[in-house]
């Protein structure tokens, strides 16, 4: 049963990549949303009426920064789809992704 070995070998790689990209990016996205919410501040209601929350620019900036990382991850995915359509693949040997022929 060589196939079982090959399959399990492939499976843990897919699981690892899936966890890093498939769970990691949404987590960053969620953190981004949390930062934005924090940056917008919390409104409070008391006897004198509604008080708008204090804005925290750091949170807003951090939030958009995290979104940018997520967008970069999505672009990497897009590049991969387009590149493999044209018979290329993405190589990570220089750490940053480069497109090389398959």
């Amino acid at each position: 049963m060589h196939n079982l070995g090959f399959a399990l070998d492939g499976a843990w790689r897919v699981l690892l990549a899936g966890l890093v990209l498939g769970a990691g990016l949404p987590v960053l996205f969620a953190l981004g949303i949390r930062s934005l919410a924090w940056g917008a501040g919390e409104a409070s209601v008391d006897a004198s009426g509604v008080t708008a929350g204090t804005k925290r620019p750091l949170g807003t900036v951090l939030g958009y920064l995290l979104f940018a990382i997520v967008v970069a991850g999505v672009l990497l995915g897009l590049t991969f789809i387009v590149a493999s359509g044209f018979g290329n693949k993405i190589s990570f040997e220089h750490i940053y992704p480069t497109i090389v022929p398959k």
Partner: peptide, 21 residues
């Protein structure tokens, strides 16, 4: 979001690694 990104990542990673699913 979690379901779809998980699916997208698994599909792309597996086709990158030649593990057809």
């Amino acid at each position: 979001t979690a379901a779809q990104s998980g699916a997208a990542a698994v599909i792309l990673a597996s086709s990158h690694l030649g593990f057809a699913l």
